[in-house]
Write a protein that binds this DNA or RNA. Structure first.
Lengths: 205, 205
DNA sequence: CCTACCGATCGGTAGG
DNA sequence: CCTACCGATCGGTAGG
């Protein structure tokens, strides 16, 4: 009797915890795309990791590129969502920049594998997805540039080339996906603090 | 008579300026690897750009990967060579870091296409080349970390995590290959100055 | 540098 | 989710 109840509860939990086959496919694909790159990952590689035949993948997905699209646009959504809390900050542009950097780092550290695919494999998107992607990126980069421009106008920031500045900041931020270890001792907040402190105040004493 | 002499001189100049077929192959391959990635570039793509058949490529090269190896290890050589002038600088660690950054930027800006392949496609190297490559990179990164450690010891730099600092600096530096335009108005030296000023002194006034 | 060709592998479909 | 299979393309070789 007790055993039956236990098994029943276990079955419910499994249903709650277990990922759908489609989710499993996307998760493993993300790992493979990160490790080998999109082009060098075959559907047979992916199927093997999941223990099924390559043809069976197509019961759950439409194409190889569909997986890439899901990853790239889901991450883009995350970055835009994270910007909502940034917009609330208006005390100073230095503070707003810190918030923006922290928000950006939070998204990356939450899923470094998807971030790697987002940053490195987007060029394999076909049209019109590629153009959509690039338009979103330009929008997002423009928001960082706006903070820089506002900070220069208010006299908080040095006079710099805003685009150059934005590219430098984002490259430092984006690179974290390569070395951040979620099970390490550094929290996402600490990474954000260190990076914003460095980029705003410099290495010199 | 004059025409014959002119043609003769022209022929000599052409010989001096004209790249060997092997050099042409490497140059076009670099462009394609940058644009589409190594794995997504086929030997038929490469042959088409050169106006020959894919099979003809193999009179000049041994394999597709050989081209990638050439690009990656040539760039690695350039980075190590550029370090020689850095070693001479010992007035201060801030100055040495500036020199190191300028040297690094100089190599990247001199050949942004090869740099892109170097930074993005090295993972397609097979063993033992991959291990060699990673060992060289670790050596190079260690040199930047040494400057940071020395600068902290001398009291010039803030107390930071040296590895974190090194990764942040190099990511900013390395990203330049993505946006630097050799025919634009910004000289390699100016890029180096701006980046070292930002990373050493920060954006805040 | 070409023609002709190789075996292997690719993304994906049909039908059950 | 599988078997069986498709046409296309891959890196590369033989022989001239």
């Amino acid at each position: 009797m007790l055993t039956n109840v236990s098994l029943y509860i276990f079955a419910i939990m499994e249903t709650l915890v277990k990922k759908s086959r489609k989710e499993q496919i996307e998760e493993k694909a993300t790992q493979l795309f990160q490790e080998k790159g999109y082009a060098a990952t075959s559907m047979r590689d992916l199927a093997q990791v999941l223990g099924i035949e390559a043809a069976s993948l197509y019961s759950h997905i439409k194409s190889k590129e569909e997986i890439l699209q899901k990853i790239c646009f889901r991450m883009a959504d995350e970055f835009f969502k994270s910007w909502e809390e940034v917009e609330k900050e208006n005390s100073s542009m230095a503070e707003k920049m810190k918030k923006a950097m922290a928000a950006h780092i939070k998204v990356i550290t939450q899923d470094t594998a998807s971030s790697a695919v987002f940053f490195n494999e987007w060029r394999h998107l076909s049209e019109p997805h590629l153009s959509d992607f690039l338009a979103m990126r330009e929008d997002y980069e423009g928001r960082f540039m706006q903070i820089i421009n506002d900070g220069m106008a208010s006299g908080e920031f040095k006079t710099v080339d805003p685009k150059f500045m934005m590219l430098t900041i984002l490259s430092s931020l984006n690179w974290t996906h390569n070395w951040y270890n979620p099970s390490g001792s550094l929290s996402p907040l600490e990474v954000g603090d260190r990076l914003s402190n460095l980029l705003l105040n410099g290495l010199n004493k």
